[in-house]
Design a binder for these strands. Sequence first.
DNA 1: CAACAGCGAAAAATCGATTTATCGATTATG
DNA 2: CATAATCGATAAATCGATTTTTCGCTGTTG
Lengths: 357, 357
Amino acid sequence: MAQQEAQQRRASIHDVASQAGVSAATVSKVLAGVTTVKPENAQRVLDAVELLGYRVDPLASDMRRAKRRIIGAIMPEFESEFFGQMVSELEGLAEQRGYTLVAASSRESEAREKEILARMHDWRVAGVVLAPVRNEHGPAAGFMKANGMTGVLIDRVLADDAFDTVSADSAAASAEVARALVSQGHRHVLVVGLGQQAATVRARLDGFRKTALELAPDIRIDVVLCESDVGPLRTLLRDYFSKREDGGDRPTAVYSLFLKGTLVALSEFRRRGWHCPNDISLVGFDDAEWMQVTWPAIAAVVQPVREIAANAIEVLFRRIEGERGPPRARLEPCKVFMRESVGSPGSVPHSGGGDRQ
Amino acid sequence: MAQQEAQQRRASIHDVASQAGVSAATVSKVLAGVTTVKPENAQRVLDAVELLGYRVDPLASDMRRAKRRIIGAIMPEFESEFFGQMVSELEGLAEQRGYTLVAASSRESEAREKEILARMHDWRVAGVVLAPVRNEHGPAAGFMKANGMTGVLIDRVLADDAFDTVSADSAAASAEVARALVSQGHRHVLVVGLGQQAATVRARLDGFRKTALELAPDIRIDVVLCESDVGPLRTLLRDYFSKREDGGDRPTAVYSLFLKGTLVALSEFRRRGWHCPNDISLVGFDDAEWMQVTWPAIAAVVQPVREIAANAIEVLFRRIEGERGPPRARLEPCKVFMRESVGSPGSVPHSGGGDRQ
DNA sequence: CAACAGCGAAAAATCGATTTATCGATTATG
DNA sequence: CATAATCGATAAATCGATTTTTCGCTGTTG
């Protein structure tokens, strides 16, 4: 029986109409909640729908609509906790409003980013949440503007003159990290980062540098940055420490601006047999579940994923509903968790090299 | 200019037709690659397409098709590295074949799983890759079967009589873990797991138990399992160790059957001040990037994500292309990395309680 | 009592493509 | 030379809904 049902084709609105003894237009109206239908007929329609197991065909239904109840999301990748949570949040929020989220990953490629956008445009998505690979000035944002798409930019963006933006307040968080490290006595810090072109990297770096120099003008800040790939960073970091191994002028703390940088730093510490925080302190931008359970627990800046997602969806739907006005740039505050990987320098002698102070 | 283009409505096939001075049918044929079109006309069509920036409307195009070039993917969650990688792989493989992947997360709920499937059915997806919350016998698989959908089940499944399945060879991996632990001298192991009902949990547990008992009949295997949520497991684990704290008969190694269990175990070790592998050894099912950079590095079973994804897509497309025959259950071998978190028991005295041997 | 307003529902147009049937012109064949 | 076959292209039907227009009927009103 159920098998037969499976074989026979899906019921259309006309099947429902003839079953109920009315026209297709009437069925459509009943299902749309129009009140100018005789209650008796409405009931017959509902019964027929029930009997035939009818479901509206979204393809046909959306055909005449300018916009479908679909939100597109484009993330640089799916593998990290941050973007995974982001997609999850966005999906939930979109569905709360009766929309379906369609997510795609740009795989850190701006070309793909644009292709995906074109596809979503073809699909007539009502709006797009775009987490660009680099920043708000890429070709993807240009495509969206040129095609009159509705969208919000999140994460690696600051402010844009065409779209609303929502991101973590990287500068403020970095300032807090700077305060913490300086107050612990650190006067030589290495800042490590990936994605040189990302809008937020500069904000994080500047935020750290500005506050650190304010509080301790004599502080020395080294910077190792490289573009998107993790391999080169590993090499750069190794070279950086190799050069300073003998001189003994190596930093007492490392601040990584991205999760992968934190992993690379930890891996380099391991290789050299350094322990946190005795041999060196470590703070990373981006938190992860595991950072609380390792020994030492890793200090980290926690990005407000839920808040970013909630705000992005909020502002996106306002635009979808037709709100005008200049785009707004929103910054959500981060939390900084100074865990065990941060300590005072020199409290325990470094395991290798001489120490200056 | 570009702005004007943005405002005016999207070009339809009729616009292209009149621009090229032919009928819409001819345009359709040119774009579909039909050869019975005069080369001259074909060129005019292509020129018009170029001029108007025409793109086929997928909604209208798919309307008459029974199946769209879309693959659905349903994962229990998006937050973990495993499923994040899985979605990423599936997306890439689907696009290689000219299909679009639409991913959704069931949030560990079988009800949602079925709703999403219904939605995907409405969307006329060509096939579905379903990673069920529990196992292959849930309502989702039933829905797929009842509606004649094409699909593959992955991850938390063993074998099914209606659908092909692809998963990691949990039993073999667990056997290897058992061999490693026994050969290191462990004779009292705690196995920790989440998701009691997942098909793979039983396989992992049985695989471990069978091999461990074969190699060391006197081995003692304790088991702490609980359903999907991580909170209860934390409590269970705390109680488990509290009871054994004084008696001194606590296990020398913990084998966690899921990533979250590994985190909970580590967290409990931290709380008690136990270090791996001196105080206790730890192996977890599911690898993560961070496990290589912590100190100690955490031993883990690495699931072959790429292989599972590749096989799932492979077998799915075979079915989409009409292959008949009974469903096949495929097991992909795991790799086991015995990292520093595993050592021999008693090589260093436990930090607390008495030791028996 | 004719004209008209109001109501509910059916008929028809529409969305934008694909596919089938049809048609006219040219070429081949008896 | 008349008819058939072939070719290229157009007209029309189709997919399954929504939306607009039309229509028939009832009840009101001048």
